[in-house]
Design a protein around this nucleic acid. Sequence first.
DNA 1: TAATTCGCTAGACCGA
DNA 2: TCGGTCTAGCGAA
Length: 800
Amino acid sequence: MTKKVKGVLLDVDYVSREGKSTIRLFLREEKGIGIYKDVNFKPYFFVRVNHLEKAKKTLKENVFGEDTKIASIERVEKANFGNVLKLVFENVQDLIIARANITSLPDIIEKSEYDIPFAKRWLLDHELEPMNGAILEVEGEKVRKAELFEIAEPKFASAAFDLETYSPGRFSDAKKDPILMASFATPKKSIVLSYGKGFSSKKVECVENEKETIKALTERMNGGKLDVVATYNGDMFDFPYIKERSAKFGLRFGVGADGSEPKTRSKGRDNAERLVGTQHLDVYQMLRFLSRFGVVNLIKFDLESVVARLYNVEKEKIKFDEINRLWDERKDVDRLAEYCAEDSEYTLKIAEQYLPLIVELCRLVKQSLFEVGRASASMLVEYLIMDKCRKTNMLISNKPDDAAIQQRLMHPVKGGYVKEPESGLHENLAVLDFSSLYPTIIISHNVSPDTVGCEHKECREKNSAPNAQWFCLKERGLIPKILKSLFEKRMKIKKEAKALDKKDKKFLLLNARQHALKILLNSFYGYLLYSRSRFYSREAGSAITAWARQYVQWVGKEAEKAGFGVVYGDTDSEFLSIPKGKNRQDVEKFVEKINKQLPGVMNLELEGFFKRGIFVTKESGEGAKKKYALIDYKGNLKIVGFEYVRRDWSTIAKETQREVIRLVLAEGDPEKALKKIRKTINALRNGKVSNSELVVFTQIKRKLDKYEAIGPHVAAAKKAVAKGREIDVGSVIGYIITKSGKSISDKAQLQEYVKEGNYDADYYIEHQVVPAVIKIMRELGYSKEDLIQGGKQHKLAFFG
DNA sequence: TAATTCGCTAGACCGA
DNA sequence: TCGGTCTAGCGAA
């Protein structure tokens, strides 16, 4: 008896029992999470062989370990290779043993697709998409058939939890230190579970002790009601901690859809905590992931800093020694509870904000939320390519070995072209840029590892890149195939979104979808030149940049021919100055004319018009690249590359620089800028500047003893460690240059150890404020001395 | 423990 | 103590 069930596919995993590995599907249904099994799908990989029959015989006779057998061997046709055998196994363990030894056998050339995890393999081989709808035809718990159905506007039940733990003068140790409280937030309600006296907050649900706290939290979280559980660093802290504490009490934190505990998966130096069914989204990991793509721009990743940056809210941070004090003295435990509750609430808020984007990525790359929320760009691209390979019946390339990786690293590819700017002030500018330059080159010129250097004379003549590589025009390549479909999807969505109000829920959803597509589109070029890529192609990568350089320089030349000035250009953009006698329409006409001549989907876009712009010179006197500021006709500033946008400069220098740029560009008044600078310098001299304006943030990128040159940030970190503070690799520290010490490094101290007023005024004047503003003032004829002493006045006629 | 190259700038480091 | 070179970090695209 078969029946149909319908729901959202949350997860796929496998279990091994009695010598068989079986796929499980987790389906969000109305009542809960249904678990179904695909008993027919077996683990497999391929081998390329010299001689089919001989190889078959060898393989059949071979037993790799105790009882390790190949369940079946079949010959398969692949689009890119002949003589391929598919080896199927009863379970994953057999596959693992077999793949370790197989290449040593005679007649085997190469193993292929042997390192794709079984559950991922299932997803790649089926049409279903995680976080999208699925209709399963089932017999009992066994799946007979599975198909996708689109859910346009999905809604997911999500919640977040957070723990506060005891930490007597050191970092909490799950073996000894109890959980004090646990907060649990859903979009509707937020509660805190705890024990002991002194609570009066309505949010707090008091239970008897720690054990009951764990029990109560477990109860809230299981029962298959949740699709997503969000934590903030649950991978490294909350989950491992509560598992350990549970075990101590003889409990199990069994909040997976099948009642299992979260499993730890090691991910390089870090771990991840995986729940089956219900998806664990570690918001901390997700934000790291999103910041790699520029979706968010965060400096520090602790929850307080993140909340401050995302929502402009100063959330209270209670330090661990104070947590202990409040708990022990039972004073103001409500405040502690509120703090704990806020952590969950904000974690959930951030999760929900970015969920649509991540969900869209899940669907596109056909992997679970757990995977995507922790993935890298290369993994996302790889999933897409592997999916396309399966659809077009191609054997997926293997990962490169170490020697190949080293080879690749030794031969970098020439990148984009950057034009040296004409420094100084410019008026009436138009900025043009190629929309999605590299992806559109790939699509329009069919750039792909499998189309390079074909034998057709015609392709060579018509489709050669400036670096002499050419690409076949007869058949679309693997990479362009994928990019074309992503590109077209994105165009369609953008068009649809354009018709909607920006506050419309549908708009936000469409925007998340187009953003997901953009992320993927932009990741392919990097993947082609990524040293560990399965589809590395120096030829393809260098052709892309060669074409890019050619196109952007060609547009520059054409612009000059058309009578515009070309002020600057970087990789995919041109900054034109519009001379007297020309207007906006002339620019538009120029763009139109260029677009008629561009091939395929390539497109030059008019980004905007700007009233003024400033470019500065380097110490050497050349125009500085990747540094400029523009102001549009509405008065909006766009500051690029300057210290103002860098985190490793003090606020006092950055804000002064911004104000100087604004005064110069918006008001055209360098004298006002000069006044501002002198005022700042005076404040510094008089000790009036607060520490918060003096902090410099820098990331510690390696272990402290691994530095060859001890810069101020390393020196400050070392001193802090000597005082007992922990500083991990990857953490961002804030330091101040104090009065005591000889070198700058000697004077550097972590912000938290510096008393107000104890700063080296000369340093902040000479090394922070002046260097930040002199670049700009120099363009207007001022010297360093003018800034510092208040030298002679300049009469300048820059603004008529 | 995982996309690329181009570019700027600081401060340490090192030898004269 | 000077000036050149190297290490390091971060941003633009």
